Amino acid sequence: MKVVGLHIGLLAVLFALQFVLPAYHHGNLARIMVLASYAIGYNILFGYTGLLSLGHALFFAAGMYGMGLGIQHFDLPAAPALIAGVVSAALVSGGLALLALRTTGVAFMIVTLMFAQAGYLTILYFGEWTRGDEGFVIAQSARMIAGIDLSDPTNRYFAALILFSICLVVCLWLIRSPFGKTLIAIRENEERVTMLGYSTFAHKLGAMVVSGTLSGTAGATYGLLFGYAGASFASVQYSIFPLLWVLLGGAGTVLGPFVGTLFMFYLIDLSSGITSAYMLIAGVVLVLLTLFAPQGLMGELRRRFWKGLP
């Protein structure tokens, strides 16, 4: 009950903050919740299954462009376009999983990176449709679901909160289910899980599809809420970001992705207000955290004070 109460408490605080935050932080927190949803998807594969992917930007971009191109070129309403983005991410993650899971370790990492780069170059190559590096703006009139204008700051915040809540609940349910416990066992000792008669390939395939679908849902939602789809979201940078967020917050913890995303977002935001060399400050802080909190912020909390924290 403590675990459930903790997560409900976080959602309640985020709900209440909508009514008290200044406009600047209100917009920031909406963005953080969507990006944290992306990190939650990444954490299922990396934190709980033990598979290090450097290609998750492919799934994020698949969701974003599946949604954005549906609106831009096929005049889909926002809701069907959002569904198209989710389906696109599921198909891409399933296809990549069937290929990448033939490899292990460093080879898996490299394969996911190469496919993500292929996706990025595909976006640039088909610039007539995607507008390449420039990307395209999604018109405000197209960002409506059931008469609700998602470009409105309040509606955008609540939409981001709904997405984050769904991803948080899915992750919490998944890791406490037999399937999730098997994923954790695979992370700890895959050979023993195989000896017990489990199909590790099928479980890793399922984990990758769930991870990619959640990440793609975050990408589609991000494009819809903030009205833009661009090739930069398919670049290596957006594959590294969720890895950093998860490591900072605590890999293999449900709340770690949110804490890591929130911490890094404001670390860069605040340090950029002090100096133009803000990445140097961010880098020093990240090194210190790596040295003194190697399991991440929530990971250290679990290790030191709360052993049962999921």
Rank of each mutant, 00 (worst) to 15 (best):
P80V: 08
Q72E: 14
L21C: 08
L51Q: 15
V87T: 01
G50R: 13
H56G: 12
F74L: 15
F59K: 00
L91T: 01
I32P: 04
H26T: 03
F59W: 04
A36M: 11
H26S: 00
V13S: 01
A84W: 00
F74A: 14
N28F: 14
S53H: 03
H73V: 00
L51E: 12
I83P: 06
V20D: 03
G47V: 00
G47L: 00
V86T: 10
Y38E: 11
P22C: 08
Y38A: 05
H56T: 09
G55N: 13
G47C: 06
A23Q: 14
G50M: 10
A78K: 02
P77Q: 12
G85I: 07
V92Q: 00
S88P: 03
M64I: 05
H25V: 04
L54I: 15
I32D: 14
G70P: 13
G70N: 04
Y65V: 02
Q18G: 15
R31E: 02
A36I: 11
L54Y: 05
G68H: 09
Q18F: 13
L14H: 08
L52H: 04
A16Y: 08
A12W: 11
R31D: 00
A78D: 08
V92F: 07
V13F: 09
H73T: 04
A79R: 07
A90W: 06
L82E: 03
I83Y: 04
M64C: 14
G27P: 03
G68F: 03
V86P: 00
L51Y: 15
L58D: 10
T49D: 05
L76E: 07
L35K: 08
I44D: 05
L54A: 11
V87G: 05
H73N: 12
L69P: 06
A79K: 00
Y48I: 12
V92D: 07
A36S: 14
L29S: 01
F60V: 07
I71V: 15
L58T: 03
Y65I: 02
G55A: 06
L52P: 04
L76K: 06
Y65H: 10
V13G: 07
S88A: 15
F59G: 00
A81L: 05
H73W: 15
V34S: 08
F46G: 13
L51V: 12
G66P: 09
A23L: 14
S37H: 05
I32M: 13
F74I: 10
I44Y: 11
A78V: 02
L58E: 02
A57N: 02
A23D: 14
D75T: 11
